[in-house]
């Protein structure tokens, strides 16, 4: 199984290491052509404005949308969640615009308010997940067909919509790879559209 990790900016190396440790083939995608034949895509944490802008300039948005339409799993962490969202609060433009959610950027505050917390994610079972929130976004509202996987203090921080997965936090910064495994399981059992 070949997972393309968008590598225009951000913490892509950590995602690749996590996927490889789970036995998947993972590689850096810097151009549209790198997305051909991918069985799944991860959009890492980083700066969503920079990642969105570069993906647009390198014509990577449409190939990712095509993979999504073909039922391949797409996972966005933090900035990646913003890139996936159909609506970004206070902004007219979106990036991939795939996931039927409204996100609020930097919703927990500035860097000094960034935090770690243990959160329950029933879909991956016990124990609680060590979630690292860095200038993190959260999901303000979800459309129909979006499953809320986790909340933190009443804010939605993990969601799934068919083959799309998004978290406000950064599993790639911990050594708990259960969410990466969950994502790989999605790739093995594609969701029909």
């Amino acid at each position: 199984m070949k997972i393309a990790v968008i590598a225009v900016q951000g913490a892509f190396r950590e995602h690749i290491a996590a996927l490889k440790s789970l036995g998947a083939e993972a590689y850096e995608a810097k151009w549209a052509r790198d997305l051909e034949g991918a069985d799944g895509v991860i959009i890492p944490g980083g700066e969503s404005t920079a990642i969105g802008k570069l993906m647009r300039e390198y014509d990577m948005l449409e190939p990712v949308r095509e993979l999504a339409r073909a039922g391949k799993p797409i996972y966005g962490t933090c900035a990646g969640m913003i890139v996936l969202a159909k609506r970004i609060e206070g902004e007219d433009t979106t990036h991939l615009g795939l996931m039927d959610v409204t996100v609020r950027r930097n919703s927990f505050g500035r860097q000094r308010e960034s935090f770690e917390a243990e959160i329950d994610i029933p879909a991956i079972g016990a124990p609680p997940f060590p979630a690292v929130f860095i200038r993190a976004p959260h999901i303000v509202s979800v459309g129909e067909g979006v499953e809320v996987l986790a909340t933190y203090e009443d804010r939605i921080v993990a969601v799934r919509q068919g083959n799309l997965l998004a978290t406000s936090f950064h599993p790639e910064l911990t050594d708990d790879y259960r969410l990466h495994q969950y994502f790989l399981n999605m790739a093995q059992a594609p969701v029909a559209h």
């Binding site: 913490a11 980083g46 960034s114 950064h170 910064l173």
Partner: peptide
């Protein structure tokens, strides 16, 4: 229970800047 200002949060912020200007 949440923790602010941990090494992971502080270093993680820089991790997100990688490959950037």
């Amino acid at each position: 229970m949440s923790n602010v200002g941990t090494d992971r949060v502080k270093r993680g912020m820089a991790e997100m800047q990688k490959g950037g200007v």
